[in-house]
Amino acid sequence: MTETHATTAPGAPVFPPGRYGRRREPGRRRPLLVALLALALLAVLGVVSVRLYQQYGDPNYRAEVITYTGITDEQVLVDFRVTVPDGGRAVCVLRARSRDGAQVALEEVTVAARPGERHITTQHRLTTSGRPFIGEVLRCRPA
Rank of each mutant, 00 (worst) to 15 (best):
D86P: 15
P85E: 03
E3Q: 08
P17Y: 08
F80W: 06
T127M: 02
G101C: 14
L138G: 12
V111Y: 01
R118W: 08
V44G: 03
T72Q: 01
R22V: 15
L45H: 09
R62S: 07
Y61V: 06
P115T: 01
R51P: 00
V44D: 06
G57H: 10
E64D: 11
E107S: 07
S98A: 15
R28Y: 13
C92W: 03
A12G: 06
V104A: 01
D79A: 10
A112W: 08
T83H: 08
R125C: 05
Q103C: 04
T2G: 11
Y61A: 05
C92T: 10
L126T: 04
R29M: 10
V111C: 09
D79F: 02
R24E: 15
R97A: 08
L77D: 14
Q75R: 14
T127A: 05
F80S: 05
V47H: 00
R118C: 08
V84W: 00
A90S: 15
R23F: 14
P17H: 09
V93L: 10
R99M: 08
V109S: 07
Q54K: 10
A38W: 05
Y20Q: 09
A43L: 13
E25M: 15
E3P: 04
V137R: 03
L52E: 14
E25K: 11
N60M: 04
D79Y: 03
R81H: 02
E25V: 10
L77C: 01
P16C: 05
G21A: 08
L42N: 13
V78M: 01
H119V: 14
D58R: 06
R97P: 07
T110H: 03
T72V: 01
A9I: 14
E136C: 00
T7H: 08
